[in-house]
Design a protein around this nucleic acid. Structure first.
Lengths: 156, 156
DNA sequence: CTTGATGCAAAGGATTTGCACAAAT
DNA sequence: ATTTGTGCAAATCCTTTGCATCAAG
């Protein structure tokens, strides 16, 4: 499974003088198997252990940074933690994350038609402030439809 | 200076059973004196020391969380750090932060006319996903006009 | 074989916490 | 007087790093 994707990633690494090790394969597989999900380094470790394999946590830390630096995964900040998600093969340009403050789920909306709207807005900001924008993250916090249905007050 | 604001904050605290201590006043003053600025706990400590006063770093950590919880200041994430800024008296609903990845300045745009645009977009998202949105943070990273002028490649 | 990569354990840095004491109401 | 708040130092948590060894190319 995912041998095609791994082979492609191997080529990227090799072209830059890096190696695709056993451990890196295990880490990348976690992302390939869950292309929409976010993982902390510890989450990744747990996923690997769940399969009966092992990669030291230090190696995982080293590799999430490494994979981020070469644009294979992306780092997002959620509250206290840094989470990582697949970037390559995802071809998205703008990030929209919607967090539910009640159930703590993260809804990760990719390039929907909806983003079109947002692109215009970003262009507008670029002009207004003479800023060359490389990355746009839109983070919304609120209560998801699921938790609204369940009812109950959140704010005192 | 700021006795009016501090008195108002005292009332809020007291109504909730808390006290406005000497240390809390010093901390709040840092924010009142710099309503547009962002501070880390260490920054706050430095500001206080600069005035020849002292508050222990543990107390500052305790109080930024405390002041955040009662909505007097707001926590924003910038890279690795948590920064805090005045929220009360600022009456803004939507946050737009633009970061320059070259000079590391944070441009903090408040409720400009520009936000109008954004409010429509947020309403749109609320409808599309049946989400009750409480907070919207828009984070843009790029290169500010100042650094563009200076020239030089940023990306290899 | 050569160089990059890993695992371990120790170090590091930021944040939190237990406890005795201080001070705000 | 009470009870919250503070300072200190120790503890904790997350992340990084030095070093000897391993393995990918």
């Amino acid at each position: 499974m995912f041998s095609k994707e791994l082979e492609y990633i191997r080529e990227i690494l090799i072209s830059k003088g890096y190696k695709l090790t056993y451990q890196r394969k295990l880490i990348v597989r976690v992302f390939l198997e869950n292309p929409q999900m976010h993982f902390s380094p510890l989450d990744i470790s747990n996923q690997i252990v769940k399969k009966g394999k092992f990669v030291s946590i230090a190696t995982i830390y080293r590799n999430v940074k490494f994979l981020r630096d070469i644009d294979i995964i992306e780092e997002i900040i959620y509250g206290d933690e840094k989470l990582y998600e697949l970037k390559i093969f995802a071809q998205k340009s703008i990030h929209i994350h919607i967090y539910c403050i009640k159930c703590n789920k993260i809804y990760n909306y990719l390039n929907l038609k909806v983003s079109h709207n947002l692109i215009n807005y970003i262009n507008h900001l670029e002009n207004q402030f003479s800023f060359d924008i490389k990355k746009a993250d839109f983070s919304l916090k609120g209560i998801c439809s699921n938790c609204i249905v369940k009812g109950g007050d959140f704010y005192s």
